[in-house]
Amino acid sequence: MGPIRRSLETRLAALGRVGAFAGALAWRACTPPLFGRAILGHVWSTSTRCLPPVVAVTLPFGMVVSLQGLEIFRVFGAERLLSSLVSVTVLRELAPVMASVLIAAQGGSSCAAELGAMRIKEELDATAVMAVDPLRVHVLPRLLGLALSCPLLYVAGSSAGLFGGWFTAVLVKNEPSGIFLQSLWALTTPLDIWAGVVKTVVFGLCIGLVASYHGTFATGGAAGVGRAVNDTVVHSVLVFISANYLLTSAFFGATT
């Protein structure tokens, strides 16, 4: 019983620490001073850094949806449904999730690596000693940078996914482009896009929180930074995948 209880206590303590950390950051996000320029700077750098991988992932996925969708629909002669399938899949699930996975892998791990290296090299401590709040100056801008880049990259990823779907259907599989584009919006509404934006903002906050937490509390030198990066990617994906289930249920899960 002893070791189980101790492990439970350690986990609860860690959870408590995360909660306290999140609370401290939330407070700083709502009160001045907010380093707007730093935040925008991080939004820009995160977005530009994550854009290539996000597009590199959503584009092929859009293509695959088209590919597989056509294989099935051609059996039933329902090819005109293809673009609706593509847009529904891309906008509602594929783009938010895949973009966020890559943002966690690229942006989240960079954030954790940067903050981790700062922790190891005592730069966070040095900032505090100079009577400047390291959470406001170093941590919060990165967190908000991640959170705010997510919806931007969702839009980019969706576009790439839709393009990929069109590309495969029209240029590779010779479906008529007009019909494809016509039915593209048959099943989707602006609400879907808003749902995607809300999802990605939530995901971005999850990634930002997990990344800043692991980076800020990294210990143990270079190996510790590697651990922080590893943990960040995995934990943030776990967190937002479960959040995704809840949000999808809320938005799309009306029972018949």
């Binding site: 892998a105 791990s109 960079s110 690596a113 981790g116 290296a117 930074v225 590697g226 990066v229 990617v233």
Partner: peptide, 14 residues
């Protein structure tokens, strides 16, 4: 350096 390892793991997964 510690950044080197962090960068390597970052790039590896992406």
């Amino acid at each position: 350096g510690p950044e080197g390892v962090g960068r390597a793991t970052n790039r590896a997964v992406v």
